[in-house]
Nucleic acid binder design. Structure first.
Lengths: 149, 149
DNA sequence: GGCCCTCCTGCGAATTTCTTGCAAGTACAC
DNA sequence: GTGTACTTGCAAGAAATTCGCAGGAGGGCC
């Protein structure tokens, strides 16, 4: 994984927002970068606690990174909010949630940019970010649930 | 507002899922139907507590209604999950979050159905629900933030 | 390279949010 | 009308999140 470059950008971004570069922040960045799925605050707190970080620090940091636009919250499943790195630290992508196995899949290409520009123009808004969440059955579960018919 | 018909559907849907029609459930339905914006669990618990409902009941009920597909959770702002009625109790719509005033607007027509069908066909998934969340500046804030240039 | 200011972090306690078990109440099928 | 199973309120409890404070560390400046 070519995270070296992303990490450089991350450092630069911290500076841009007046945030210091600390081991803890790099730890969080690497944890997020190392997971393709969004991580909930609880998961993140747990993973980073394993590395010796205090929960309070994790929560505080998440707020800062979210405000700075470095990390972005998205829905995971039916009840949780997950956090993941924003573009350009991670390419834009959307999510597909399988209602059967509860797994979240990335959709690398949503092909919605055009439609969104139109939407924005229609009512005079400026769209800077979009996230699409699809729910349904993944190929595996679809096969499993409809074996014969 | 033509909620009478929607409420009839709601009652029918409760039955379909083996849930009883109780005053509390109608109360929750009306509260959700009476708000165009999604309500967070805390807001909902607060509003219904004002009507004499117990928080525990509210949380339990939300789980049931979510599982039954009557209510659906969506992201509100950057940190919260809001609940709102699903189609057909309420027409499908998506959300636009203004990053400046933090208000949530409904997007009545997303025009994405075609694109989503294509996406689904491409990898063999079955899409039964989609939600689009746009972030940016609403027309008002856009004007306010760019007065001259 | 060293100093100093400010930000960051860990700790512990407090608060808020949400869950659970149980007994009484109520919807609704018969 | 009666009985059963689902609902609800209550109260205790668990889990998640926030807050205040004091010590530690990053990094700008000389």
């Amino acid at each position: 994984m070519a995270t070296a470059n992303a990490e450089r950008q991350f450092r630069a971004s911290l500076k841009d927002h007046g945030l210091r570069i600390t081991p803890n922040r790099l730890r969080m960045f690497r944890t997020l970068a190392g997971h393709s799925e969004p991580l909930t605050s609880t998961q993140l707190a747990g993973l980073l606690a394993d590395e010796g970080m205090n929960p309070a620090t994790v929560y505080r940091m998440m707020q800062q990174l979210t405000q700075a636009g470095i990390v972005h919250p998205v829905m995971v499943g039916h009840e949780h909010i997950g956090y993941e790195l924003m573009s350009p630290y991670r390419p834009h992508h959307d999510h597909f949630l399988c209602l059967s196995c509860q797994r979240t899949f990335d959709l690398d290409e949503c092909g919605l940019d055009e439609a969104l520009v139109k939407l924005a123009e229609r009512n005079g808004s400026l769209v800077t970010f979009h996230h699409v969440e699809l729910h349904g059955l993944c190929p595996e579960c679809r096969k499993a649930s409809a074996p014969s018919a």
